[in-house]
Design a protein around this nucleic acid. Structure first.
Lengths: 244, 244
DNA sequence: CGACTGCTTGAACGACCTCAATGAGCGTGG
DNA sequence: CCACGCTCATTGAGGTCGTTCAAGCAGTCG
């Protein structure tokens, strides 16, 4: 059933992620196909959603990276989370929801309207899981910022990205495309780009990773996870990809 | 309609908060009254929910303070958020949800089962708003930890607590009961208790606040908000307490 | 080739931490 | 009613992690 969508376009990664969360049924696939008709490209640095504005509709990220971000009056910037293919932005059940953060494209991004959750129970469940995951990663981020040192923060973020990209099939071996600058990483981790640079070089010297031309390779993710004591995120007692 | 519940017990603050989020209809009030029958006390330091365990049912905090918390292997501790009367824990739409953090009581706490959301549309909307607020405060916390300095973090947290307690009617003038130790504040803000102490004394010297015997008074909240450039949180285009 | 953006490196500084000791407040038991 | 023990607040001295400022270098794009 995924095939039908593939034929239409290549939303591969996004659909793959949703399908990993919950095996999608036919209704979900049809709804997704419809939604794909609304696909539109967003240029890097462009806003997808502005903080304080009313959310028109939830969006599904088809390709590219985006981020939720807050700007302080004096120019300081904080990335709240990174949004990857298959992530859904603007989920929420309240009436007339307002965006609590700006969402900007970090790379060329393709988004479409997220198919309405009432089209299929599988879709509703996928959204519920997606939102729960989103929240879990926010909690992880809080711990990271509050109690980890610079090196732990960076390692932890890289492991999180690997874990998330894996769900969308966007990782190969232990490497993935990382379209972030060191300054963006700094703004996500509460550090300066100078210090991020120094810590990454430390990782390199210690043989933990390779990073060049936009591709990051973790030498041994599980060893790294042990080194910085990281637990993978879990939000449901049912493992992903299990039939329900 | 609130009166009926008051007669039964004093869930005052919690009901007041929900009613502030959305004016509760009769069904919601009835459901709440039923839920109050399940009220139970929790001693300080006791776990309400354990990280990684399946969530049995969402809980409504009736009185007292609790917190979501993560412990690292080496003993470091991070408070993710504080839970106040009227807050609901464990909301989520996925099947068999798993707790992504431990929830512990900081003071004597009274909780009850949260009335099921399908009992009343008002209740469902209140939960949706509650969850959105919860998420918004997580985002605020991330910005706090990532980009504010020690003094800004503390001021920002105090303003947030005032803002939230106000919704439950638990503030008088610009003061409220603050049952936290400086060490807890430190563990929420990614600081040490020593440094929190020094910054609070700085606030005192600057005349921004008074804090003794468990009660915090902010001299001039809006001046403080301006000083550290804080914006109140908003998650819906509809102002709280508005009939829908 | 120039202009730009992002990475790299050095030196000095400072915000916050660590360690350690003292004091204040409070409940408990004798 | 006092002594004891406990938790929490306070204060000092010294150390460190991460920042700030500044400059040089490499890759990329028009």
């Amino acid at each position: 059933m995924i095939r039908a969508i593939r034929a239409f376009r290549d939303p591969g990664a996004a659909v793959r992620r949703l399908n990993t969360l919950v095996p999608l049924d036919e209704d979900a696939t049809l709804a997704l196909t419809d939604a794909l008709a609304t696909a539109r490209p967003i240029k890097p640095r462009r806003e997808l959603i502005g903080e304080g504005h009313e959310i028109v509709e939830p969006l599904l990220i088809l390709s590219g990276w985006a981020a939720r971000v807050r700007f302080l009056a004096d120019g300081r910037r904080q990335f709240l989370s990174f949004l990857l293919p298959g992530d859904v932005v603007g989920l929420g059940h309240q009436t007339r929801p307002v965006a609590t953060a700006t969402v900007i494209a970090l790379t060329p991004v393709e988004v479409c309207s997220a198919p309405p959750r009432d089209k299929s129970p599988a879709l509703a469940e996928a959204y519920a899981l997606s939102r729960a995951l989103d929240e879990a990663y926010l909690l992880a981020n809080i711990t990271r910022l509050g109690r980890l040192n610079a090196q732990e923060r960076i390692g932890d973020l890289f492991l999180e990205l690997l874990e998330r990209l894996r769900m969308a099939g966007l990782e190969s071996g232990n490497s993935f495309a990382l379209p972030l600058t060191q300054e963006m990483i700094a703004d996500a981790l509460g550090l300066t780009s100078v210090h991020v640079n120094r810590m990454i070089q430390l990782f390199r010297r210690e043989g933990d990773l390779t990073w060049k031309t936009g591709r990051l390779t973790l030498t041994d993710p599980s060893a790294l996870a042990r080194k910085i004591n990281r637990q993978p995120v879990r939000v449901s007692a049912i493992p992903f990809g299990t039939a329900r």
